[in-house]
């Protein structure tokens, strides 16, 4: 079955589209909602978004492949994004990633078989004073060490 937005989401999207003099400008906000609702933006979701904004599916694909936060593949329930930029590296981000790789049994870019965790390394997250830091979905965690990450991950259901 092809995906559909709920009535509530459709209303929200209408509101967003109305902010811009051209419909197309709403594509990033609409794709954020799409990814949140369906977990990823595959070919089916591309068609849905294209229909709403009156553009071609290929134009949606062009956007999805340009922006790193948008994903064509489904991610784990928890997306762990570890900063690998300079301030975090200085304070041990490398070892921290190694620890996560060992703990989760996956490499950066991979998802655990139970679909619980996806691990990524990313560029500066804008929280360098809390190095080394990471995002889990949209929550920031700073000053990471193995003990802290154990506590955080073990607390996730």
């Amino acid at each position: 079955m092809s995906p559909e937005f709920s009535e509530k989401t459709k209303k929200k999207i209408e509101e967003i589209v109305a902010r811009y003099p051209q419909k197309e400008a709403a594509i990033l906000p609409v794709l954020h909602i799409t990814q949140q609702e369906f977990g990823s933006i595959s070919a089916e979701e591309e068609k849905l978004v294209a229909r709403i904004l009156g553009i071609k599916p290929i134009s949606v694909r062009e956007i999805v492949t340009f922006y790193t936060m948008l994903s064509r593949e489904s991610l784990g329930k928890y997306h762990i994004q570890v900063c690998s930029n300079l301030s975090c590296s200085l304070l041990g981000a490398g070892n921290f990633v190694d620890y996560l790789v060992e703990k989760l049994g996956i490499e950066p870019g991979e998802t655990t078989p139970d679909k619980k965790f996806t691990l990524s390394t990313v560029e500066c997250l804008g929280a360098c004073e809390r190095a080394p830091c990471m995002l889990i979905n949209f929550n920031y965690y700073g000053e990471m060490d193995p003990k802290k990450v154990d506590e955080i991950l073990d607390g996730l259901k």
């Binding site: 811009y20 051209q22 197309e24 400008a25 990033l28 906000p29 794709l31 340009f66 790193t68 936060m69």
Partner: peptide, 26 residues
């Protein structure tokens, strides 16, 4: 209005930001 980007450093460059806000690649 608040408009959220989607992960691309280049969109901080002012003309890339405009492209991105218009709904294009940054």
């Amino acid at each position: 209005f608040v408009h959220r980007g989607a992960g691309a450093y280049i969109c901080g460059e002012e003309t890339a930001l405009l492209e991105s806000l218009e709904g294009k690649r940054g």
